[in-house]
Each structure stands twice: as C-alpha cells, then as structure tokens.
Design a protein around this nucleic acid. Structure first.
Length: 152
DNA sequence: GCCAACGTTGGC
DNA sequence: GCCAACGTTGGC
C-alpha cells in the first residue's frame, strides 16, 4: 500500500470530471514521462491512495482524494493518430506508455500549493521540491496522514 | 507572458 | 557517450 500525488490539468480532467465519470473512474491517459510511467508500472497497486492535484490553473493545489483501481495497462491514446498523445514510435506489440485507472473517493476544499508549503511536516514532499515537474510523485505515509487528517 | 528547471533529441 | 539545443512543465 502506497500513496501518490497525481497532477491533472482541471481543464482536461478535474476532480469533478472524475466524480461524474462512469463508475467514478478515469484511465490516467497521457503520461509521457518515463519516471512517471515506471511508478505506474512498477509500484502502483490497486487500493493505493491518491492526492488529486490540479495543476496549470488559476488555483493549483490538492482538490480531492482518489484511489488506484487497476494495475498498469497500455495507454490506448498512444495508438490513436488523432490524439495529442499519439506516439508513432510505440507499437501494439511493445507499448511504450502505460496507465492505471483512478477511482474517485472525495472532493475536498482546495488545499492550495502555498498552504502545503507552510507546513514543516510537508517540507520534503516530492511535489514541493525545487524544479519538480513530475506529474506523479510518491507521498510518504506520514505526509498522507498529515494531509488527510489535518488539512482535509 | 515570463522564465527556471528539467527531459529529450540528435550531431559528433 | 557527451552535450548543446530545443521543447515542455507549471508556478507566478
């Protein structure tokens, strides 16, 4: 059992989109970074906790709680020529990009990025590290507990 | 729109 | 294998 922070641009997939999706579930399409892919492929298990983070928007921050609900499987958008996530270098036989399904748990009052930075307990969070651009980062159990018990 | 930081590409 | 150039992310 692990914990993760997963970034999504709310224009594309917000916490509300997740809540309203069929089975309250969305496939986490579009990851095109090897480190993030490897987290999904090698580390994620069904039931892992997810902090759903809104990025590249007026109010970046944690917008809800979710859960990993599948193991990794090929991201279909890499094969779709019409998709912005299409990857000509990938093939059905050896898919380059994987994803997991994520299921909605709870919408929360937004915890802004600036608020996360105020807490000593969270100072080592990967997502807060200088220059971090990874769209999926591990969250420690202590960080998860602090956020879900104290900030939600 | 700016720009720091980082990942990827490709020439050598 | 190095590394400069380029592209992308994402907060501000």
């Amino acid at each position: 059992m692990r914990y993760w922070l997963m970034k999504s641009e709310p224009d594309e997939a917000s916490i509300d989109h997740l809540a309203q999706a069929p089975q309250h579930t969305l496939p986490w399409t579009g990851v095109r970074n090897y480190q993030a892919r490897n987290f999904m492929r090698d580390m994620m298990q069904v039931g892992d906790g997810v902090l759903f983070y809104h990025s590249s928007c007026p109010e970046p921050g944690i917008a809800g709680l979710a859960e990993v609900s599948s193991t990794a499987y090929p991201d279909p958008t890499q094969f779709d020529k019409k998709s912005t996530y299409y990857d000509a270098k990938s093939s059905q036989e050896t898919p380059r990009w994987l994803l997991v399904d994520v299921v909605f748990k709870k919408k929360i009052p937004l915890i802004p990025l600036a608020a996360l930075r105020e807490h000593e307990e969270l100072k080592d969070m990967r997502v807060l590290a200088r220059g971090n651009r990874l769209s999926i980062t591990p969250v420690t159990e202590a960080e998860w507990r602090f956020i879900t018990k104290r900030l939600v």
